[in-house]
């Protein structure tokens, strides 16, 4: 299934709802646009909703790690929510769980960053 992402901006928080398969092909297509959007809108935090992400490999990990490093420079954070079992396994394997915040739902993730509702 092709990859799509829906973006919503709430103050300095970028909410990304990812859908489909996040592989090398997909990351190459969205990376530039994502970086541009983050700079234009002066984004400090990202919430990744992965509820509908069916597949991800190490290219997806690379994309997330890249954005995380960028946010870190601004003392921002990355919050992951609604993560599926297979994607969770990849996170555990790569150690991403140790640096990113995980919340069960989108509402809780937005609440953590003070932009819920």
């Amino acid at each position: 299934m092709a990859f799509t992402v829906q973006a919503e901006i709430k103050k300095d928080v970028l909410l990304l709802r990812m859908q489909g398969e996040l592989d090398h092909h997909a990351t190459e297509k969205i990376r530039g646009e994502l970086i541009e959007l983050m700079e234009e809108q002066n984004i400090k935090h990202i919430v990744l909703n992965l509820a509908k992400l069916d597949f991800m490999d190490s290219s997806g990990l690379g994309l997330m790690l890249g954005r995380y490093k960028h946010l870190q420079k601004k003392e921002g954070s990355m919050v992951i929510c609604a993560i599926s079992k297979p994607v969770k396994r990849l996170f555990e394997m790569s150690g991403l769980f140790r640096i990113m915040v995980i919340e069960p739902s989108e509402d809780q993730a937005l609440m953590r960053l003070g932009v819920a509702g």
Binding site: T27, R31, D57, S58, S59, L61, G62, L63, S94
Partner: peptide, 14 residues
């Protein structure tokens, strides 16, 4: 520079 995570082989082995 291409934001490769370096996890490809680790994932395959796992």
């Amino acid at each position: 520079e291409m934001e490769r995570s370096g996890m490809g082989f680790t994932i395959m082995e796992h």
